[in-house]
């Protein structure tokens, strides 16, 4: 069971969190201007790397904050966790 450092609450057990998959997927500003293929790429296509992977996690049974995790998909080592962006979420 992973030990994950929530940027707000500190280290907690994996059971308090849920994984939101790949980080850095940005919703297109103007979906109507995209081709079907471009929209499908945003909608469905995700990286599945062997090694370092930038992910979004949610401290769903804790402070309910989303944050970034850099995790190795082979060793499960977590290189770092970070808040998403400055602003009101701090």
């Amino acid at each position: 069971m992973l030990l994950i450092k929530c940027p707000w609450c500190g280290e907690r057990a994996e059971t308090e969190f849920s994984c939101g998959g790949e980080a850095g997927i940005t919703r297109p500003a103007n979906p109507d201007s995209l081709t079907d293929a471009e929209w499908a790429d945003y909608l469905f296509m995700r990286k599945n790397p062997r090694g370092a992977h930038a992910e979004l996690w949610n401290h769903s049974l804790g402070c309910r904050r989303w944050f970034g995790v850099e995790r190795d998909t082979v060793t499960y080592r977590i290189a770092k966790t970070c808040k998403l962006s400055p602003g009101k979420t701090d």
Binding site: R27, L56, N58, S60, R65, W66, L84, G87, K88, T89
Partner: peptide, 16 residues
């Protein structure tokens, strides 16, 4: 609730 929160926190943090 989680769905709404996820959009507010990850995609549209500028929204008040």
């Amino acid at each position: 609730m989680s769905w709404l929160e996820s959009w507010l926190q990850t995609e549209w943090p500028e929204l008040d």
